[in-house]
Write a protein that binds this DNA or RNA. Structure first.
Lengths: 165, 165
DNA sequence: ATCAGGGCTGTTACGATATAACAACTAAGA
DNA sequence: TCTTAGTTGTTATATCGTAACAGCCCTGAT
C-alpha cells in the first residue's frame, strides 16, 4: 500500500478495500468516530475505484442500494471521511478519491491521468519540504495545500491501455 | 512586478493595471489576438483586485457597465484571457486571478490568504524542478499543474489588517 | 465594391456541483 | 429514564459552468 503511485499499477482492488475498511474501523474505535452505513459504503465505493468520482456519481450508487437519495447524504459522508483523513477532494476535478495512506494528516500530491482518469496519490518528502520553504520564505503561514499534476500515466503512455486495470 | 508575492505588499494597483493592459495589447498585436471591450475590461477588473474573483462577481460588474449580462459573456472572456496567459483559474476557489508575469506559459503557484482573500502568484524554480522530478520519477508525463497553498499572509499574521491594501 | 467565412456577441436554456435549514430520530452517558 | 450531541431525511435553493444557435462584424479574396 506504500509503493509509488500504486493506483497506476495492476493489483487487487478488493485487498485495497479491505485494508482501507479495517483501518477505518480501527481509527473509528480509537477516536470515537461513528461509522454509519452510508459512510462505510462511500469509502468502499471510492476505494474500489482508484479514480476520482463525482459526488453525484457516488450518490447514484447509494440511491441504487437504498442508502440515501438526496445530495446532502453523500456530501455529509464525504465531509466525514475527508475530515477523518480517508478521502481527499481533487479540486481540479470537483471529485473525491480514497486516501492511500490514511491515518494521519499529511501533505498529499495527486497525479491525475487525462487518459484513463485514474488518480494516484504520491508522497514525496522533497516536495513537501520545497513547498514549505516556498511559503515560509515569503512570510506565509501554510495551512493546507493543493498539489495536483495532470498528465498521462505510464500505462496510457505505453499504449497498454490502462482502461480498468 | 517581479518581486515575491507582490500582491501581499502595499503598492499602486493602477500601475499594475496599466502594465498589464500594455502587455496585453502588445501580445495581442504580436499574436493576432482580438481584443474586445469585454476582454479588456475583465482583465482590468481582475488586475485591480489582486484577489481571486468568481465569474459571477465579474459578470455583475460587466452588467453594471453594459458590457454583457449573461454568464457566457464572462466565461468567454475568461477563456480567452486564460488561454493567452493573462489570467489563471484558482481551482480551490472556483475563481480567477490576473497573472503577475504574463507573456509565456509557466508553472504557477498561488498563495491564498484565508484572512483577506488575496491571492499572490509566486515563481519558484526549486518548486518547479521538484515537481517535475516527482512526476518523471514515476513515469508520469506532466502536462499541467495545480499548486495552491492556503494559509495566512504576512499582513494578516501581523495583525496589521491587510484588508484592502 | 462585394461577398464569403471565421470569429465574436447576445440570448435562452440547461446541467453540474454544493449547501442552508429544520424537523425527526438514535445511541451513549448521567 | 432522561438528556443531549450527533445523525438522518427532506425540501429548497445557491453557485458555478456550458450547449446551442441566430445574428453581427471584421478581414481578406475576388
Amino acid at each position: 500500500m506504500n509503493e509509488s503511485a500504486i493506483a497506476f499499477a495492476e493489483h487487487d482492488h478488493r485487498l485495497c478495500r479491505q485494508t482501507m475498511l479495517d483501518e477505518l474501523r480501527r481509527t473509528a474505535r480509537k477516536r470515537g468516530l461513528r461509522l454509519t452505513p452510508a459512510r462505510v459504503r462511500v469509502l468502499e465505493i471510492l476505494s474500489e475505484a482508484h479514480r476520482a468520482m463525482g459526488a453525484y456519481e457516488i450518490l447514484d450508487r447509494l440511491r441504487a442500494e437504498g442508502l440515501g437519495s438526496q445530495p446532502p447524504v453523500v456530501y455529509r459522508a464525504l465531509d466525514f471521511l475527508t475530515g477523518a483523513g480517508f478521502v481527499h477532494r481533487i479540486e481540479r476535478l470537483n471529485a473525491y478519491v480514497a486516501c492511500c495512506h490514511p491515518g494521519g494528516a499529511h501533505g498529499a500530491c495527486f497525479l491525475i491521468c487525462a487518459g484513463c482518469r485514474k488518480v494516484a496519490e504520491i508522497e514525496d518528502g522533497a516536495l513537501d519540504i520545497t513547498l514549505a520553504q516556498a511559503a515560509a520564505g515569503r512570510g506565509f503561514a501554510m495551512r493546507r495545500t493543493v498539489l495536483e499534476i495532470e498528465g498521462i500515466c505510464p500505462a496510457c503512455r505505453g499504449g497498454t491501455a490502462g482502461g480498468d486495470a
